[in-house]
Design a protein around this nucleic acid. Structure first.
Ligand SMILES: NC(=O)c1ccc[n+]([C@@H]2O[C@H](COP(=O)([O-])OP(=O)(O)OC[C@H]3O[C@@H](n4cnc5c(N)ncnc54)[C@H](O)[C@@H]3O)[C@@H](O)[C@H]2O)c1
Ligand SMILES: NC(=O)c1ccc[n+]([C@@H]2O[C@H](COP(=O)([O-])OP(=O)(O)OC[C@H]3O[C@@H](n4cnc5c(N)ncnc54)[C@H](O)[C@@H]3O)[C@@H](O)[C@H]2O)c1
Lengths: 227, 227
DNA sequence: CGGCGCTCGTGCACGCTTTCACAAAAGCAG
DNA sequence: CTGCTTTTGTGAAAGCGTGCACGAGCGCCG
């Protein structure tokens, strides 16, 4: 039996939120029990993978029956640290920063915006979805005041490193970076990036391949059903 | 010597856009030649990985010297299919769809918005960054008229499958999905997803771990410098 | 024109991820 | 209680991706 306190492989961690979302949806539709087979189908992955992923949390299934949705939701939440809300601070209140600040899905999934800061005097003071845009030098106050550990970089690329440096100086230990720039940070800080251009360029690669028509279909995890 | 016509591993394809962006930046700063060591540093990865990735394109470096930035830019662009602009159609003109439509980074990187459609009558007809929001049933016309092959899903999750189905019916073969939903599509259609909630939840996992403090630092590709 | 220093290209070994396959466990029916 | 069905949990194998280490090739200098 897998211990709940063992490290979970990154590849599995990335799939857990997908299972979680599906389980919540199913539970809301009065599905109390779900098999790895069914969960795999809904998540667009292999059933063995689902079982192995879930086994990292512990042994929470019932043989011959499946997994109890409600209990599994609780266990995944616990493991992902979603038993409480995480405050998040956003740096850069442009197009994207404002879209994020107003995004309802945030709060539904265990996060809320503790603050949003910008360098532009014309923006400071405006209110987006009930959140006031504040000056860059209030960052430290926001972070320590709300015990924020997660920061979002939504500045232009050339300001991204500066934004990251300020976040780290303020005490942030996890960063989600939307700017197309490589951030250099201390090893203790975790960075994840979301890069729209990269995603489109990957699609472009496969379309390009399709045109030269030497292969039928690209291999990889993104075929067929995809989360 | 690696043939340019061989399939490139997905992991490498994902890094090519990062190298490309860095090379363009360097070239604009009059750097004509760059070593794998330097490129690796800027990309936050291992130098051997850079060389292996680039070797899939062909043998375009010069031993003892490095890579000629301009030529490498051309080769990566060619391989990624970025020698021409790709038209993209967006379904869903909400917060996110509008931010995307107005996003300048799009055009800088080889893509342009051929059209944006929505189901909401109140939105149809409005103009975002010079692009008029059109009705859902104009999708087929937009796609065939501009020979669009890439579609973006920016609708709420419960409309995402419908949006994907319509895109596919219209002739789209690649989809970038921003909705937190698993799309089921024919095997010939490539789907990539961008899931904000997943990213935050992964960060939450590592923060959670940090609190229980049984391990020092999460392992994985996202430590240290990260694109 | 030969030797030297530098950097590429890549074979190879290692570790991580995925998938298969099956014993073990649970429920149910008779 | 026994046997049958179902589905989990997990070893073991296969498949990928990463990083080391080093031979090969290129340019430069003397
Ligand atoms: N808009 C999109 O759809 C989109 C999509 C993908 C990626 N991105 C990326 O996200 C980032 C933001 O995009 P955007 O469209 O919101 O840009 P934007 O120009 O609309 O907004 C950037 C904001 O950051 C602020 N800013 C600049 N320097 C700053 C600093 N040092 N500290 C704090 N704030 C600072 C600016 O005042 C501005 O308000 C960019 O890097 C962009 O490439 C945007
Ligand atoms: N806003 C964000 O920052 C953000 C971040 C990450 C992910 N997302 C996801 O992106 C998606 C869009 O987010 P949003 O904030 O723009 O939502 P939104 O509600 O602002 O916009 C959704 C738009 O889709 C339209 N729509 C609904 N059904 C449709 C259909 N069948 N066909 C075409 N259009 C349809 C609606 O009319 C609306 O204009 C959501 O799935 C959301 O979870 C949003």
């Amino acid at each position: 039996m897998a211990q709940s306190r063992r490290r979970i492989p990154e590849a599995s961690v990335i799939r857990l939120p997908v299972y979680l979302r599906i389980l919540i949806e199913q539970f809301e539709q009065q599905v109390d029990n779900i098999s790895s087979e069914r969960l795999a189908e809904l998540a667009g992955v292999n059933a063995a993978k689902v079982r192995k992923d879930l086994s990292y949390l512990g042994s929470y299934g019932t043989r011959g029956v499946g997994y109890e949705a409600e209990y599994l939701i609780y266990q995944i939440r616990r493991e992902l640290g979603l038993t409480h809300d995480w405050p998040v601070v956003i740096v850069g209140a442009g197009n994207l920063g404002q879209a994020l600040a107003g995004y309802g899905g945030f709060s539904e999934r265990g996060f809320h915006v503790a603050g949003i800061v910008d360098v532009d005097d014309n923006k400071i003071g405006s209110v987006i979805a009930g959140i006031r845009i504040r000056a860059l030098d209030e960052l430290a106050k926001i972070v320590s005041g709300h015990e924020v550990v997660i920061g979002v970089v939504a500045t232009p690329a050339d300001a991204a490193q500066d934004a990251a440096d300020r976040l780290i100086a303020a005490g942030i230990t996890s960063i989600l970076n939307f700017a197309p720039a490589v951030l250099s940070v201390p090893a203790s800080v975790v960075v994840r990036k979301v890069d729209l251009a990269t995603e489109l360029q990957v699609l472009s690669y496969y379309e390009q391949r399709r045109l030269t028509a030497l292969h039928s279909v690209p291999t990889g995890s993104t075929r067929g059903a995809s989360a």
